[in-house]
Simulated assay, not measured.
Amino acid sequence: MANRLESQDNPRGIGKVQIPLHVKLIFPSVFVLGLVILYPLISSLVLSLFNYELTRPDEIKLNVLGNYGKMINDDVFWLSLKNTVVFTGVSLVISIIVGLIGAITLDQLPKRLAGLRGVILIPWLIPGVIVGFLFMLIFDVQVGVANVILERAGMIKEFLPWLMNDQLAGIAVIVANIWNQVPFYILMFTAGLKAIPAEIKEAAIVEGASRWQEFIHVTLPFLRGILIITSLLMIIRNFNNFPLIYTMTGGGPVYSTTTFVIYIYRLAFEQFNIGYASAVGVVWCLVLLLLSSLYIKVLSKQDSI
């Protein structure tokens, strides 16, 4: 009765805060994301300000910038940064080239062979751990297919210890990563090629443009947006690629394939140096935040065109 009188006195709900329905619907998801992402991020930031080692619980003390200053003289930190940049850069460039060639090739296939596109996408759907085990066998020093093929082709005289050599291990990991992510580029570039109006291509041919000129002046400009967005997504993915590298080499031999995520894992779960691992993680989070901001900026520009 009281609620009915209140509604009659204030029939329009004046003074009450009306929460939109879509806000109510997304609130549980936002809450879960905040719990899963925001809480660990704040915890890492707090832990990075302490000298915190699990093996020395009695020696935990506040050291605001000590862990961050330690990175300056940490050779492994800079080596992991170098490995991450090389791993990401080489994988990105080769994947773009191979993906673009593959997309153009698939675009020329007749309709009866359209099913090949689904087959080519299979490597992208395989989890990184499975890819790591697969290529660990491929590059095995005794029974690896890579050594057998290279030997029969006359390129090597004896089997190479791919995963036990500093330089060869890096090459093996990059090859596995390229194989895993090239289908994604093929998928994206194929979608971009389908979006190019046929009239523009025909006009270029009528004007006497060669296939190469058509590719440079017509195809590439239309693929520019997809290329930038896809590349940024793959940069973030490669920077955080833990399963494949850890499965194949564990970051070794020594630290030759240790990237940032591998180094953070070693600090936290092998050396139990939670404070320093958190500091490295915060620095890495800032790098990813910068890349994400760049990604959003590119998206905004594309939407405004």
Rank of each mutant, 00 (worst) to 15 (best):
L5P: 08
D9K: 06
I14N: 13
V32H: 02
F27C: 07
V36Q: 08
V32D: 02
P11G: 06
V30T: 12
N10G: 03
V23F: 15
V23L: 12
G13K: 06
Y39V: 06
R12Y: 14
P11R: 11
I37R: 08
L41A: 10
I14W: 12
L35A: 04
E6P: 08
F27R: 02
R12S: 04
I19N: 07
P11T: 05
S44P: 02
V23A: 12
V30F: 09
Q8D: 06
F31L: 09
N10K: 05
L41K: 00
Q8R: 10
S29V: 05
P11Y: 07
L38N: 09
L38K: 05
R12L: 06
E6L: 14
G15T: 07
G34C: 01
Y39W: 13
P28M: 04
R4F: 12
I14A: 09
I14Y: 12
D9Y: 12
F27I: 10
D9T: 07
P28Q: 03
R4T: 08
K24F: 04
N10V: 05
L41G: 04
Y39E: 00
S44K: 02
Q18A: 03
P20C: 02
S43A: 13
R4V: 14
V46I: 15
P20G: 02
V32Q: 02
Y39T: 00
G13L: 04
I19L: 04
G34L: 01
V36I: 12
R4D: 13
K24N: 12
L45V: 10
V36F: 09
L33R: 01
E6A: 14
I42V: 15
S29E: 06
G15K: 10
I42L: 15
G15L: 11
S7H: 11
G15D: 11
S44C: 01
G13F: 09
L35C: 08
F27E: 13
I42K: 05
F27S: 09
L21C: 03
L35P: 01
L21M: 08
L35V: 01
F27V: 07
Q18I: 01
N10T: 08
P20Y: 05
S7A: 15
L35S: 01
L41D: 09
L38A: 07
L21P: 01
L25V: 10
L5Y: 15
S29P: 02
S44Y: 01
